[in-house]
Amino acid sequence: MQIELEQLSQLADIYKKLSTGFHISEQDFALWQELDNNEEAYSALFTALGNQLKRDSRGFFHFEVDDATVNMGKISRLFALTTYALVEFFADKGQDPLRALFDEEISHEILASILQQQYHLFEQLEVYSATDLKREVMNRMLRYGFAKAQGEQFKLLSPIYRYLDALMAVDQLTEETNTEQTNTEGQADV
């Protein structure tokens, strides 16, 4: 396929963002529209450069990687834990967690609450206070395109779905063990 480099006007910008692990969502309007319009060309070009451009139907682009570096693994674990703690937090308050996750602004008070609720888990990732949580997690979420700043507060963006998808996989995990158990019980009866 012929790629007209001149037509890919935002190439440098887009490549720089994606290759640093950034997720381009509809929020970054100019870049997203550029990718949306020339998806095929960008995708072919990035594949040739050794990166897999992935488009998610819920409105974001990112590079797919097989092996994450150790450091990023820790960051990703922090993101996951924070996201799940937020789901738990909103559900306990009687809100629909999915809607609240994207509608609510994440304030310092909310961060303090989830930290208190899941302290023993955050502690294992060396996060000990709401300030730590803001610095270690929320500010990094900004840097990777998972959230945007709204004054002093944060709002989560669609790439968070990557973590919610992972959460859905848990269901399969537990179901597997359940069926396994019933299987063995069946055997035992025999």
Binding site: A91, D92, L98, Q118, V170, D171
Partner: peptide, 15 residues
């Protein structure tokens, strides 16, 4: 109060 959805159930299970 708690809203019980698939998502919140999974989050609890995982945590």
């Amino acid at each position: 109060l708690r809203k019980n959805t698939l998502l919140s159930r999974n989050a609890s299970a995982l945590l």
